[in-house]
Design a protein around this nucleic acid. Structure first.
Length: 446
RNA sequence: GGUCCCAUCGUCUAACGGUUAGGACGCCAGGUUCUCAUCCUGGUAAUAGGGGUUCGAUUCCCCUUGGGACUACCA
């Protein structure tokens, strides 16, 4: 029942990607997640883009500068990297040596006057402990001396995430921060910043990471997942939402199927676990198949249409499309599967004659049975060419012959589909229509 | 290397001191059936190891081991 706010943290301009905001909005909108406030809508706490808030950060960093809670650092990149390398060589934790923390006021002024570039660093306490509270893990104890004097303002005047995020969260009256586990190690520094400002920090919920199958951090930067790729393959929003929600969260009972609406009702922080989860595609496929089966034929046909059109099939007849799709529905894991699953309907398959034989039937027997069934089918009126009618009449006809279903149905199905495995003959015949069905039988009999 | 986090079936997880350790996916088997899929039924499979605390530990504590994150003028 809260508000969901989108803020663009674009302080690293090197990594800025053209059109990223639209993509992000699109994909979130696609899965049904909407923002109450953000750059695209209204809200009372704008601007919602960090690079448009530089004056805000300036004001706040000046305040801390005044109170000596932060300091200017003139160290060059060379000095910093040399130091880090040396520390690593000595197997020490790489950390800033606080050289500029003790610059005299006059020296600072001099260096400022001469135009030396500088960053602004956060002063960490020399000793003591910082105990922070995470809603999932409880209290976490950090030794202050382990904390680095991290950069708050870069030499280009733009703040780092570590600074802008805290200022904005406070100013925008954020009450709950849910972020990935990877932020846990900077958590104490964040809390220290709140204390420097004398602000009350929001509640923090550090979500367990989602790992890829090799056990590493699942990351778009590493090319593991693009939501767009899942969408393009034909994963449904319902499936993705359901699957992701259950990665690290569990409701009060054994329910496994959740819609977004249900999640809004049932989701609570205390259902979130602390251990990381591996992203397992097989379960996602299960959910996707499940939600595909839940669709009405009309809905599913529309969802499948672009995939079919993409392979060059011209779709003029809506009824025919729905018929084809209905044969694939129970068999699809994702929408793109429709192409392969309906291929035999669009184009007749080549097959070995021996495929017509069921169990011990010879090719002659099979063809003979086909001939008999062909003449029965021919008798059926066009307007009765429906699955149920076909099934009823043919099955009872077979019974009258005192024969086994398989003796006739297998050859019939193969003649219609050309496939070892396929949907049943009556549904295929019905979807194909009388004309095409008899044509395929005729070719089989040649 | 340092700091921090994590640890139940292969995977996602339930059991918040007392259960034959439950559910889901997967896998296997059976049923329905002309095949495949769907559907139904059943089965397989786990508390990482070692110490404590306790009448009793999956559960609380410690150690070990393993995995992960962070360690940037990136987020």
């Amino acid at each position: 029942k809260g508000k969901f706010i989108l803020r663009l943290e674009d302080t690293d301009q090197k990594r800025e990607i053209e059109g990223a905001l639209d993509k992000l909005l699109n994909i979130l909108n696609w899965v049904g997640i909407e923002f109450d406030e953000g750059p695209h809508t209204t809200g009372n706490f704008g601007p919602y883009v960090q690079t448009e808030r530089l004056n805000v950060y300036k004001k706040h960093i000046d305040e801390l500068l005044q109170e000596k809670k932060v300091y200017r650092c003139f160290c060059t990149e060379e000095r910093l990297t040399d130091m880090r390398l040396a520390q690593e060589a000595r197997k020490e934790a790489p950390r800033y040596d606080k050289l500029c923390r003790h610059l005299s006021a006059s020296e600072i002024n001099e260096r400022l006057k001469s135009g030396e570039p500088f960053v602004i660093r956060q002063k960490m306490p020399r000793d003591g402990h910082v105990i922070v509270h995470d809603e999932i893990r409880g209290d976490i104890d950090f030794k202050a001396s382990d904390l680095d004097d991290q950069v708050l303002i870069k030499s280009n005047g733009i703040p780092t995430y570590q600074f802008a995020n805290i200022v904005d969260d406070h100013l925008m009256q954020i009450t709950h921060v849910t972020r990935g586990d990877e932020w846990l190690s900077s958590f104490p520094k964040n809390i220290l910043l709140y204390q420097a400002f004398n602000w009350q920090p929001p509640k923090y919920i550090h979500l367990p990471l989602i790992l890829n199958k090799t056990g590493g951090k699942l990351s778009k930067r590493q090319g593991d997942v693009f939501a767009e790729q899942f969408r393009d393959k034909g994963y449904l929003p319902e499936a993705i939402i359901n699957f992701c929600a259950l990665l690290g969260w569990h409701g009060k009972n054994d329910q496994e199927i959740y819609s977004l609406k249900e999640l809004e009702k049932s989701f609570s922080i205390d259902g979130i676990g602390a251990s990381p989860a591996i992203f397992d595609l097989e379960k996602l496929d299960y959910y996707n198949g499940y939600y595909i089966r839940q669709k009405s034929i009309t809905q599913l046909a529309e969802l499948c249409r672009p995939y079919l059109e993409n392979t060059g099939h011209e779709i003029k007849d809506q009824k025919k499309l729905e018929g084809f799709v209905s044969l694939a529905q129970d068999r699809m894991k994702k929408l793109e599967d429709v192409v392969e699953l309906t291929d035999f309907l669009y184009t007749e398959k080549q097959y070995e004659q021996s495929l017509l034989c069921w169990k011990n039937l010879s090719v002659e027997d099979a063809k003979n049975n086909l001939k008999l069934i062909n003449s029965e089918l021919e008798k059926i009126e066009e307007e009765n060419w429906q699955k149920e009618y076909l099934e009823n009449t043919i099955i009872s006809w077979i019974k009258e012959q005192g024969m086994k279903n398989g003796d006739y149905l297998w050859p019939l199905r193969v003649a219609l589909t050309g496939l070892k495995n396929s949907p049943g003959p009556f549904e295929v015949a019905s979807v194909l229509g009388k004309n095409e069905s008899l044509l395929r039988l005729e070719r089989a009999l040649k």
